[in-house]
Computed example of a mutant assay.
Amino acid sequence: MNTEKSAALAPGVAPPQRIDLGDLLLRRWQPEDLVPRFDAITASFDHIRPWMHWLAEPMTLEQQRAFGDEMATSWPSPDGSCNYGIFDVEGTVLGAIGIHDRVGPRTLEIGYWCHVAHTGRGVITRSAAALTRIALALPGIDHVEIRCDEANIRSAAVPRRLGYRLDRVAPREVRAPAESGRGMFWVEDRQGQEV
Rank of each mutant, 00 (worst) to 15 (best):
K5L: 13
A8D: 05
L9Y: 05
P11C: 06
G12M: 07
P16A: 09
P16Q: 07
D20C: 02
L25M: 13
R27S: 03
W29H: 14
P36N: 09
F38G: 00
D39H: 12
I41S: 00
T42P: 00
A43L: 06
S44Q: 05
D46S: 11
R49C: 03
P50E: 03
M52T: 03
H53G: 15
H53W: 11
L55S: 06
L61V: 09
L61P: 01
G68L: 15
D69N: 14
T73Y: 02
W75D: 01
G80Q: 04
G91K: 12
T92W: 04
V93K: 03
L94D: 03
A96K: 02
R106S: 12
E109I: 01
V116K: 11
R121P: 01
G122H: 06
R126W: 10
A129G: 07
A129E: 15
L136Y: 10
L136P: 07
V144D: 02
D149E: 09
A151F: 03
N152I: 08
S155H: 12
S155F: 11
A157P: 00
A157S: 15
A157L: 01
V158K: 00
P159C: 07
R161E: 09
D167E: 15
D167W: 14
P171F: 11
P171M: 08
V174S: 04
R175M: 14
A178Y: 09
S180Y: 11
V187G: 00
V187K: 07
G192R: 13
G192K: 06
E194Q: 14
